Amino acid sequence: MSATTEPLRVALALAAAGVPVLPLRRGKVPFGNCPSCKDGACGGRPNMKAAGPCRCPAPCHAWAAATTDPHALTSPVWAPVWREAVAVAYHPGGAGLTVVDLDDSAAVAWARETLPATRTVATTRGEHWLYRGAMPSSNAVRPGVDIKSMTQYARWLGPGTGRMAVLPAAVRALVVKEDTTPARGEVASSLPTRAAWGRSVATGCRHTERYVRTGLERGLALVRARTESGAGSQAFGVARFLAAQHTACPGPCGLTAIGEEIVTAAVSVGVPEPYARRAVANGLETAVERAA
């Protein structure tokens, strides 16, 4: 190549820093597959969700073609796409990153209220929040919010500002899919009876027993009210809120017992127990992270 195009120059710099990259064409989308890979004829790449045998040297399969190899990026088979490229994308999961894509001002406001501060990159309509750590990708995890990491690409819009934080439990919880609530009368699982929260397990709590029980009962009522859907997400929110009330206590505050009561409430309206436990554990952990 006699001259280096601007997208290729950016791509090479990112690749040198360990960030897998790929070119984007007009419309800011990946280039189409070559004839051998079109319509999945090749079986897909080994790094795709459904692993396949494809070893095509061309930039096929979008994010799965992202690479840090400068020889591949400057090879003759990639040269034509760089001449047409208008932007550069990267594979966050391949770089050990997760991008929380906030598509509008409401989503940005939600993130500022809910998620730990981290490095941010301005986009046309919102922001990208970057965290250290990879996870499964998922679109529309809530209004205006996509998670881009292991099986998606993100457009490179610059290094951003701020210090990058470790991927928090609150982001991981966004992509945990709650199973459909079973029909009325069915039981997702049966939990053994456990001791309720009380002063005996909260010897270091600075709150009165009445204060804690009142807040807990209100939270449990919110979870039990979600009889059609959303009980798992509600359990996460209740666990996070209640745990946050105890961040200034010397402890112990019996948060494990509180968590068990929330899990039981979620299971009672059809949430599978494994999901309920993950949601509650993530909620309790998130409160601790935000207080740290």
Rank of each mutant, 00 (worst) to 15 (best):
T98I: 01
D104W: 05
D104A: 05
S105I: 02
R112M: 11
E113M: 00
T114P: 02
T118D: 04
T118C: 01
T120R: 12
A122E: 13
T123C: 07
T124S: 11
H128A: 08
H128P: 08
W129R: 13
L130W: 11
Y131Q: 09
M135H: 03
S137N: 05
S138G: 11
S138H: 06
V141R: 05
P143H: 05
P143C: 08
S149A: 12
T151G: 12
Q152E: 11
Q152K: 11
A154N: 12
W156D: 09
P159I: 06
G160Y: 01
R163C: 13
R163N: 14
L167I: 10
P168E: 12
P168A: 10
P168L: 07
A169T: 07
R172E: 15
A173V: 03
V175T: 13
T181W: 04
P182V: 02
R184M: 07
G185R: 00
E186N: 11
V187I: 09
S190M: 14
T193P: 02
W197I: 03
G198F: 00
G198D: 14
R199K: 13
G204F: 04
R206W: 02
Y211K: 06
R213N: 14
G215K: 11
L216I: 02
L216V: 04
E217V: 01
A225K: 06
R226H: 13
E228K: 09
S229Y: 06
